[in-house]
Every structure is written in C-alpha cells, then in structure tokens.
Design a binder for these strands. Sequence first.
DNA 1: GTTCATTTCGAAATCGTTTTCGTTAATCAA
DNA 2: TTGATTAACGAAAACGATTTCGAAATGAAC
Lengths: 349, 349
Amino acid sequence: MKPVTLKEIADQLNISVTTVSKALKDYPDISKKTKALVKELAQTLNYKPNAFAVNLRTKESKTIGLIIPEIVHHFFSSVIKGIVAQAEKKGYLVIILQSNESYELEKKQIQLLLRQRVDGILISLANGTADYNHLTDVLAQDKPLVMFDKIAKLVKCSKVIIDDRKAAYVATQHLIDTGCKRIAHFRGALLPQNSIDRFLGYKKALLDNNMPYDPSLVYICECGDNSFEEGKMNARQLLKDHKDVDGIFINTDLVAIGAITEFNEQGVKIPEDISVVGFSNWFMSSVISPSLTTIDQPGYLMGKTAFERLYKEMQQVKNKKPIVYKDVVLETGLIKRQSTKEILQKTQH
Amino acid sequence: MKPVTLKEIADQLNISVTTVSKALKDYPDISKKTKALVKELAQTLNYKPNAFAVNLRTKESKTIGLIIPEIVHHFFSSVIKGIVAQAEKKGYLVIILQSNESYELEKKQIQLLLRQRVDGILISLANGTADYNHLTDVLAQDKPLVMFDKIAKLVKCSKVIIDDRKAAYVATQHLIDTGCKRIAHFRGALLPQNSIDRFLGYKKALLDNNMPYDPSLVYICECGDNSFEEGKMNARQLLKDHKDVDGIFINTDLVAIGAITEFNEQGVKIPEDISVVGFSNWFMSSVISPSLTTIDQPGYLMGKTAFERLYKEMQQVKNKKPIVYKDVVLETGLIKRQSTKEILQKTQH
DNA sequence: GTTCATTTCGAAATCGTTTTCGTTAATCAA
DNA sequence: TTGATTAACGAAAACGATTTCGAAATGAAC
C-alpha cells in the first residue's frame, strides 16, 4: 500500500510530473481538459501530497510549537484550546510540549522545536526561567515567537497578557470597599512577572487608600507550585501569625480554595471573619462553598489572540517583511461571589 | 541567517557532503580525525539537521497525532500530559487536535493527520461518532492507531481503557453496602461505549443484590454534554419524579457536582437523604462540600500507556512486522468521601 | 613488484514536490 | 508564405539529507 505520488498519476495519464503538479494547483498554462483528467484521477486514487516533500521545497511546515508549564490546569488548558482551534482555522497544526515549570526542559524543548523547523513558537514561561538566551536564539533566526501570560518583559517579542497589576488592584480595592481593614496577600513564587505585578497591584491599592503596607502580611512560597496544599499551609500560618487579618487577596484560585478549605476546617467564617479574593476564575471556584470571588482571566481568548499575533508575524516573515512586535493586553473583570461581603454604603455615595 | 547545511560544513572542510553526513552518524568507514573535525565544526556552526529532508528520506516524522473530544477537562488534560511526557521521552512530538465531540471534525482531523504523515494516531472518540470508516482508513494504510477511553469495540486496533462496567459495579455496590435501597443512575449520553458499560455495571450490581431494576430511575440526557447544568437539571427532575430515591450513581464527577449543588440548594441532605457516587475523580471532587465519593480514573497513566502501545506498534511497522493489536485495561479504585455513608455492619461479617 | 585486503572517502541516486525556463505546435496577422 | 504570438506541456534543477556502491590509497604478504 505505497502512498500514491505525482509520478504515479503522471504515468497513468502519460503526461509529466510537472503537468500533474501544475494541474492540481490550477496553473494557467494547463488546459482545462488536462486539469479535469488529473484532478479526477487524483481524487479516485486518493492522492495526498507528501507533506515532507512540500515542506522541504517551500521551507514551511504549517506547524507551530507550543510550550506550556503545566497542561493539567484550568486556565492553561483553556489557552491550549483557544490556540488549537484558531490554528486549525488558519490551516496550522500545533505541537504541544510541557515544560513542567523547569527551565532546563524549556530550553531543550525550544531546541526540539527549532530542529523540527516549526513556523513559529508560542510560549508561557516556566516559573524558574530567568535566563532568556534560548528565547533570543529563536528571534535571532527570524522565527516568530509570541509569549503569553507568563512572559519576560526584557525579551523583545510580541506578548499577550492581562494587566495583572490592574486586576490585582481591582481585587484588593474590592476587599477594601467591602470593609476589610487589614489585608494579606499570598503571592506564590517570587520570580514570575505575574506574581510581581499582582503583588504591586495589591500594594498600590493599599497605599492609594491610605492603608499601611505591611510586608509581614505577604506570604511567599518557596516551592511556588500554586497548589491546594500551598493554600492550606499559608492559611494555617496566617492564623498563627496575624489574628487581626480580615481579608486576603490570593494569587491563584486553587491556592485560594486551599485556604478556604483550611478556614472551613478551623471554623473561621468566610466572609464574616475573613474575606477571600482569588485569581483566574477556575470553574471550581463557582462550585465550592462558599463560592469564591475572583478575577476572570480569559484563557480561551488569550490562546486565540496569541495565535493570531503569531500568525501575523508568520505572514510578515513569508512576505520578507520585518517582524513587527506588538503587545496585547486583554480585559479582566471581577467576579463577585460569596467569599466577600457586600460593598459598604460609603462607596455608593 | 540561512540555516547551516551539510554542504556548508563540507565546503569549509573541503570534503564531501557524504563524508560529513557519515561522520555525524558515526559510520565506521570514516577516520577518527575527520569525525572529530566534522563534529567540532557542526557544533560551532550550531548545525541542526533539516527535519523536512530527513523525514522525506526516512519516511518517518517522529511525530504522532492526538485527537481528543475536549481539552478543557481534568481527565483528558491528564491524559494529554501523560502522552506528551512519554512521547518526549521516546523522541516523539505530539500534534494535538480537538474534535469538540463532533464526528465531522474528527473525520477531517484524521485526514489532516494523514496528510501530515504522522507516524501514528491516538484518539478518544467524539460522542457522536458511530461510523468508523475514517478509522479503518488509517488502519488500511498500516498506520498504527490506538484508541483510549472513548473507544469503538468494533474497530480492530489496540485500545487502552478502564473496565467501566466493573468500576460502575463497584460504585453501585458501594451504595448498596452503605444501605441505599433505591438507587438512581445519571448516564449522560446514549451512544458512547463508556456510558453503556457504566450503565450495565450499575444494572448488574442491582440484580446481583436482588434489587429491582427500574428504567425510570435511569436519566438519559439528550444533550449529553456531561455538564454541571446537566447535573442540576437531572437532580431537579429526580426530586420531582422519585421522592424515595436514596442513592445515585452518576456518570461523571462534574455532573455529580451539579447534582450535589442542586441538592444543597434544595436542602436535601447528603448523604443522609441521598448518597452520591461520581466517576473520574476530578480534583474538584475532593474540594467541594460534601466531598464526593467517586471512581478513580487514572488519566496520566492512561495517556502514558496509550503512547507506549502506539510506540510498540510504530516499531513493528518500522521493522516490517505485522502490527499486533492488544487491549490494555487499567485498574480503577473507589475513593470513599463524604457523599456516601459508612458501610453497614452486615457486610463486615 | 604483484596481489590482496583494508582503510577512507565520494559520486550519484533517491525521497516527492515545486518552479523556472524552454520547447513545441498551433494560431493569427500581414 | 512568413514571422510573430500564444497555448500547452516537459526537462531539469532545486530543497537537504541518506545510503549504496565504487574508487583511490595505503599497507601487508609473498
């Protein structure tokens, strides 16, 4: 069962390979009769162009690479879905790799994708990534690279992000508006830009409202895996350290859910004793009890948008034009649920 | 910045392309000196073999295709993770596509993957898929195809599954052992093999325990999207139809969580009034209140195993041996949580 | 010095398409 | 009839790597 080639069609019709190829691609210098003949035979033989040969000639694979820290994750899997869907629409296939939050793996995977000669790369950085040579390598080859969500500001390429700082500001402001006086923050790992920005948004909200910023209320997690356990641990610690805290803004919903679980177990009432705001709007957050007030982070849209940026850049490369980098910032919103109290009167003046 | 080729290395060293190629691949008929020279230059020039050319010659792409009904799904994303991790270990890349539970899309995507000439295909079927010609097409080309989780029994190929029937039996038996007398079942869609098998397990458990099987207690959902809403709807309907039901075995955790939410809202006590057992052990299930007793479905392992099967078959094709099909059944377990009562004494005799 | 084996290298074919540039043969104007 | 167009097709050179089959060159053996 050898796959059928142009040559076979040519032989059967007693014409040249050239003519067959041209006929299938509707070149103007082939007669309508031959075209019809060729196309019909191709159809009945179920001819499929050999992608390897086509790629070799045209130097493009119609394939992109995607590197993501963790696949089993509500937000990221939404992003993947958006990317894959949009790519398919434009005739591109997506090769997916998971960096497992490891810089070393991430580096290897970039090399893998370059060897595979994908037409472009989408990446969300591992938490530990602090060196960007593997990324600039890509750009040096004039290969489009778009970063999303977990980005490196220093790398000159297009980025698709949300305004983490603003979103965190809104979340913290909501805690303030609902009457919280002493607000803690679980920020997860130290390095990632998201983590930094969300922290900065939290801090700015405090200061803008003339509330003191107390570093001891900010919980950093060395492990930084944004896990359920991390939330429980931090919550336990918080109850020991600061009995007066009445609100927390937490980096990630999953961690927030861990915290809520711990509070529930220890009989701490939410939102009466402590209000909680999460981040990302995992589906889970609407289902737990009490349901979690959080920031909506549009994963599908981010994936879709990231691919579209990459697509534009791949077109530019194809047309031998210089790549134009552009940042896209997506809108987020606060989703009010049961883990925070009602907004106080005074803000309604 | 043209990528460096064998020819360039050859020119710089004043030797032939043949020698360079052989040197890099450690052919025995090349002197150690030349090998060293070639390898060093290749290193400094950062030579990467052109995958397109290699694929064309060797007729393999070291790439597999993966078609999955829905990416944003705890179980499936675990499977993806398992596949991607194992594939990378063996030097394979994974192209991912989402069928969106649509037969038409699934068909197109198979064609896409065949055109791309992937070395093998992993697939979990869409709910609506009842025609298998697109799958037998793949097998007819001697291209390895492994189905997992949502399979078609009639297609002759390797399959990786759990014993849905047995798992459902265990789940139902657990309800019986904890004292439930009238047990309902939410089975989701009609077609998928999983749905059928889980239903059969449920039914068999009833009969084996001399309990009547009442078809009106089995809720089928036309939409069959296994959603949170589906759970709420079915639960609402159940409360209207059958006030005497004291246990439910539900097809999927998410649906079960929907049902639990509805029961919570209507003041039905779990497990005192109604016990609930789910299926799949979504992470969420351990977090909601009450936490959900469910069947553990090993997603990561399934992905890993499915790739290993595919890998074996790809090796067989490479060695021109006939492909040997094999089914793998993975173990599941019952995870006891708060949504079911304690086991009655009598079973402990 | 001839013969034979061994070592080391290259020419060339091949994978299947694409595309440039000719080459025919037919058509048309004058 | 001649010269210029045009329509329809093909030969051949890529693309970059792999591999078969020889061909030199060296050394060993007699």
